[in-house]
């Protein structure tokens, strides 16, 4: 027998008892059965009200967690845009440094190649004893000049290659920034899912205070993105600033 039919049977019995009491004019019994019926009714009402309150509370709590949504839209997403702009400018800089270096290296190596080819052909001629002395004198002078210009050229090439090497640092710096943006996208995704799950409850909570960053610096936050991470003024703009700070600490 189901719960409902048990309840119905009980109520039916209570009602019958009430009718019987009324017919027999037993005032005391009438009062008792009336009380019993209304109490049963009230307790069901309170039970339902209790359930509703619990549901309301749960909905409020899950929405409170979702204050993160507001923080995301107001702060993190605009920050992410700045961060991605930083990635563009870093990669652009690296590409430009590399291309500029190539532009400067190519004419130097080309000239060296031409010089070597020319001298090599004449050197062969000399080795085969087919070169008049006057021509040999001219070639000797050119060889000396070639050594000198090669030295200058190679120094330039080495310097430029070093610039290309250093420019590759962009991969690390932009990688760190992109990783943070990926984390953000993941966060947004989770919050969207949660928001859809509880949508229909139409109220928007006040934005909560920004989460504390007390221990954030221990984990590491990646490069200082201009306009995003330097707003609080607690970041070092250059190696000189770092050196000054360290020397103030007794380094």
């Amino acid at each position: 027998m189901s719960n409902k039919s048990v309840m119905d049977k009980l109520r039916l019995e209570q009602a019958k008892a009430l009718v019987a009491a009324l017919e027999s004019n037993d005032e005391e019994e009438v009062e008792r059965w009336m009380d019993e019926l209304t109490t049963a009714r009230e307790s069901t009402l309170f039970l339902e009200l209790g359930k509703l309150t619990r549901q309301f509370h749960d909905a409020m709590m899950s929405f409170a967690l979702d204050n993160r949504v507001i923080e995301l839209t107001e702060k993190d997403i605009p920050d992410a845009k700045e961060r991605l702009n930083y990635v563009i400018s870093m990669t652009e800089q690296a590409a430009e440094t590399t291309l500029n270096a190539i532009d400067e290296i190519m004419p130097v190596t080309d000239a060296m190649a031409v010089g070597v080819e020319d001298l090599a052909a004449r050197w062969e001629k000399f080795l085969h004893r087919e070169m008049p002395f006057e021509e040999f004198k001219a070639m000797s002078k050119e060889i000396s000049e070639h050594f000198a210009s090669s030295q200058t050229g190679l120094t330039l090439v080495q310097g430029k290659l070093n610039e290309v090497l250093m420019a590759q640092g962009f991969q690390d710096l932009t990688g760190q920034v992109i990783k943070r943006v990926i984390e953000l996208v993941h966060d947004v995704e989770q919050n969207m899912v949660e928001l859809i799950r509880i949508s229909g409850k139409r109220f928007v909570p006040e934005a909560k205070a920004v989460q504390p960053e007390a221990e954030e610096h221990l984990a590491g936050a990646g490069p200082v993105v201009p306009g995003v991470d330097d707003r609080k003024g607690n970041t070092m703009a250059s190696q000189d600033d770092v050196d000054d700070l360290l020397s103030s600490l007794g380094f």
Partner: peptide
């Protein structure tokens, strides 16, 4: 790339 004041102090 970490360049916050607290971080440099922490490392020191």
């Amino acid at each position: 790339a970490e360049a916050k004041r607290e971080q440099i102090v922490e490392a020191a």
